[in-house]
Simulated assay, not measured.
Amino acid sequence: MDRDLAAARELAAGLAVRAGRLQLERHDTLRVGAPKAHANDVVSDVDIASEQLIVEAIREAFPDDAVQAEEGHGRTGNSGWTWVIDPLDGTRNYISRTGPWSVCIALYQGEQARVAVVHEPVAGETFSAVDGGGALLNGQSIVASSGPPLAEALVGVSFQPNPATKERAGKVIRDLLPVSGDIRRLPAALNLVYQAAGRLDGGLCLDTNLWDIAAGALIAREAGVILGGHGEDFTTELTIGAAPGLWPTLSERVRATA
């Protein structure tokens, strides 16, 4: 089944911007609900309202598409296309006002990501990609960094804040921090799109969900970032990204400890 991917990107970008505007407007009145999988897995009423906004619009535009969404508004479909949605990636940052967050929307055809949007509401930045069409930031082309030596590289780190993953992340960071230029902890989607824009030279994501990385991964690849895990392809257990010149050193180092 053919689909106008440029139009799908425009729809996703518009919805991400609308959700981001809602998040900014409701920042002072948000309500935090009960933790989900563990004490640090928090959710707010704004996460849920943002997801409802996105899913309802997609349902209206593409009633036969499946939806996979973090806060439970998913559904099955019969078109062969699936929307993967994280309405607010970085909820802890959003609630505590201690860092950035984003709205993430990806469109899959079967098992292949075809469209991706990551919108950062505070900065007003919309990263996007169509499979095979390059990566964009607010409509302008972006490319990965040239890949400096690891000792000069800025590396992003993302991980789920459950006890087991924090212990695993600690081992990686203890090994990587002394030999890298520096490290930044970020939500997974922004980690990936900052690599796409050349702001980070590489990064890793540990124990994510598909909605955390689906959009960012396509944008990163379209910008020239190499992605992998313990094998040739990345997984939700381990996603490593790096500019081509940095990839051999960073991937070997992370694989040895992650």
Rank of each mutant, 00 (worst) to 15 (best):
R59P: 01
I226C: 08
A113P: 04
A151H: 05
N209V: 15
G241K: 04
G231C: 06
G229D: 11
H38G: 00
I240L: 10
E51Q: 03
V157D: 01
Q195S: 04
N40D: 04
A169I: 00
G202Y: 10
I48K: 13
T91P: 07
V84M: 05
A144K: 00
R9T: 04
A129D: 09
E232T: 10
A220F: 03
G99H: 06
G99A: 10
A12T: 13
P187E: 13
T126K: 02
V55A: 06
G74P: 10
N40C: 00
E56I: 14
E25G: 01
A116N: 09
A151I: 08
S79Q: 03
G134C: 14
K166C: 07
D86F: 15
G77Q: 01
S102Q: 09
D47G: 02
V122K: 15
A215G: 07
A188G: 11
R92E: 07
A220Y: 03
P148A: 11
A196N: 04
R255I: 04
E222K: 03
D89G: 08
D47H: 09
L250P: 11
G80W: 00
K166Y: 01
D207G: 06
V42P: 03
A19I: 07
N138P: 13
L227H: 05
E252H: 13
Q112L: 07
L190K: 02
H73G: 07
N93A: 08
L88Y: 01
